[in-house]
Design a protein around this nucleic acid. Sequence first.
DNA 1: CGATACACTGACCGGACGTTCAGCGCGGTG
DNA 2: CACCGCGCTGAACGTCCGGTCAGTGTATCG
Lengths: 211, 211
Amino acid sequence: MAKSKEDVVQEFRVQSIQEAAIRVISRKGMAAATMQEIAAEAGVAKGTIYLYFRDREELVEKTFETAIGELHKRLDAALDREGTFEERLRGLMTAQFTFFNENREFFRLYHSLRMPEGSATQQRRQKRTCQPQFRARVDRLAVVLKQAMDAGEVRVFDPQRLALFVIEGSIALVLERLSEDAPPPESEDIEMVVSTLLSGIATPKSKRSSH
Amino acid sequence: MAKSKEDVVQEFRVQSIQEAAIRVISRKGMAAATMQEIAAEAGVAKGTIYLYFRDREELVEKTFETAIGELHKRLDAALDREGTFEERLRGLMTAQFTFFNENREFFRLYHSLRMPEGSATQQRRQKRTCQPQFRARVDRLAVVLKQAMDAGEVRVFDPQRLALFVIEGSIALVLERLSEDAPPPESEDIEMVVSTLLSGIATPKSKRSSH
DNA sequence: CGATACACTGACCGGACGTTCAGCGCGGTG
DNA sequence: CACCGCGCTGAACGTCCGGTCAGTGTATCG
């Protein structure tokens, strides 16, 4: 059975509203984004939103899930390529930098959900539904690290923790880039992260005389 | 001229209110922290707060400045010690982990201000007053990195950017620790960061045969 | 073409929150 | 003791916003 006409309309509305929500939240921030403004941005009345989403909370949650799904697709694509550990790491970083560069607006939403605000119940719920999304993001890198550790290509640490460190550190770089007028080429930042990670920042005098 | 009695009372009130603000914001988050609750926590009436701070915004700002001053003192103390680059880096990391461990509550405030919300004017103002504080934090590490680069102990990158990466990455670790029931010893995380930074995560097979 | 269904609208409601200010009580003063 | 000044109080006010629902326009059906 193909999509009925109603389904198409429904899908269109949901999508319009979600896109509007991302735009408004990006512009104003999570706290200052009102249902009224989201509705206006989507070109519908406030009440209409409530035909498609139970309440503001559900709208934000669903919107975030949709948006982060796109990010995950990109990261997975980067990770599915074969190659050495270094190549895959570099690919992952590139995908991340590129995605956030193309979706600058999404960034604020991303961070607003990272550190939830609002009532205790809201916070708990937000945590329950959004935390796994962030975790999944870290996990993707952790898996790659684990493989490399098992293969002996990389020193053994807790892969989760190392992944966390790298992801968040590089997010800070993305954030910095967004606020700069003329950021250096992406490749420069990626290079710094990858090569620091691989061989450290100490000058390699240890190659000759290992202390 | 010594402090008059009124000054002492004034100082006490300001301090009580700021401490209450930190506690409440930490518990509820920036958006959910109401003047009512901060007043109750400080043991004064809501109106009293307005005798010492112009409005909510000023309260938050001043409170944050006071609190982050304490952090900076600690970091400076760690950096003022003499020692090798590695020792100073380790000291800095330790100071940071310790501070946030002792001031868990402060963390949420810290992050709420990092990504400002609210009206556009508020955001701009918050950015103007708080951004330099964060920047100062990164700068402290950047200076150490720069020194080490000049001394040839460390490969040359943009010190600011590298510092940013390290600071934010390690903040993520602190955050992770706070949410864990039984976090591993601090030293383990510190060790991971310091040794990754210094010599990278690649296994040092290059010592014998550089592939 | 009239009746019915239904997506949509937006004025309205209730509640929350920041801010104000008239008044209260208390320590000091004459 | 009577009076005064002032730090403090908290009820009241205005604003804002999420959520509701009676009403409206339109497409569909008999």
